[in-house]
Design a protein around this nucleic acid. Structure first.
Lengths: 145, 145
DNA sequence: CAACGGCTTCAAGTACGCTTGAAGTCAACA
DNA sequence: TGTTGACTTCAAGCGTACTTGAAGCCGTTG
């Protein structure tokens, strides 16, 4: 049936603008497809490839990271395994943070306080987040505030 | 002890650059703090406020969305409740998507295929994602191409 | 044949989220 | 008193991820 897709059809099926698809190709994110009288013709599998890009971009990876991710698989070197494991760990962190945010918002909804910051439950996750970000020099904090 | 924080101290405790804090203030994301001879002095609660911004920004909300989120709480109107519920729903979607990505990557790691797209498990989540994004007009697809 | 829709390239513009640099103020300290 | 360090404003620059516009090619259709 549909052996090959024009860029318009691919855009239609993925919800990604044709301009974005060309941009992704320029970045090396999508492989340059075959051409018929100058026009791009994509194999049906391109739909899934675009889907993977959407998925990974959607969870916070940059296009360059996504590129490394999808490109890593072709050479059967061993680098990709480490990369995948790192990405997996990053993703787990993101998920954890998203769940912290989720409970914070949910608590914000349930909590009658007008000042949300007065709720310990609300600020608990925030404080944990900050603990990993503050530039404390480890000591100098033996005597807390 | 530390009643008031300078911008440098706030930056230090949150890991956010002073330039970024000023930028956030310009956007209206952070309230303009008190001044001592021209310099900003933040209440200790500013640390948590910055933390909330970090948390929400970190899960994919834009600064304008975060602004709406934190600003919504002050007027005791009823708009904020709807906003919070919407954000909560968005967040649940993000978490779900992140988990789809997680299982996809994990499967990519476990799967010996050199072409990941040949794994149904890998593409399953992608296909679901695309289903919600494709611009199909429902009919118009009876006769393909 | 002419017009139309969809494709092509290339350059420039846009939105977001900052950072950087210049030039200056201010309090503290030698 | 002078210099140091942290702060101030303002304008400009930067990286990411695109979009938009101009100018043109190509195949189908009236």
């Amino acid at each position: 049936m549909d052996e090959q897709l024009t860029i318009g059809e691919l855009a239609h099926r993925t919800g990604v603008a044709t301009s974005a698809l060309r941009y992704w190709e320029d970045l090396g994110l999508l492989p340059a497809p075959a051409r018929v009288s100058g026009q791009r013709r994509y194999p049906p599998s391109a739909v899934e490839l675009v889907g993977v890009v959407l998925l990974l971009r959607g969870v916070g990876f940059t296009l360059r990271e996504v590129k490394a991710f999808v490109a890593a698989r072709s050479p059967d070197g061993d680098g990709w395994r480490e990369l995948y494991e790192r990405k997996l760990a990053e993703l787990d962190q993101r998920i954890a943070q998203a769940q912290v945010a989720r409970t914070a918002i949910a608590h914000g909804l349930a909590c009658p306080h007008e000042n949300i910051f007065e709720c310990a439950n609300f600020t608990a996750g925030v404080t944990a987040l900050l603990a990993g970000r503050s530039l404390e020099e480890a000591h100098a904090q033996v005597h807390s505030r």
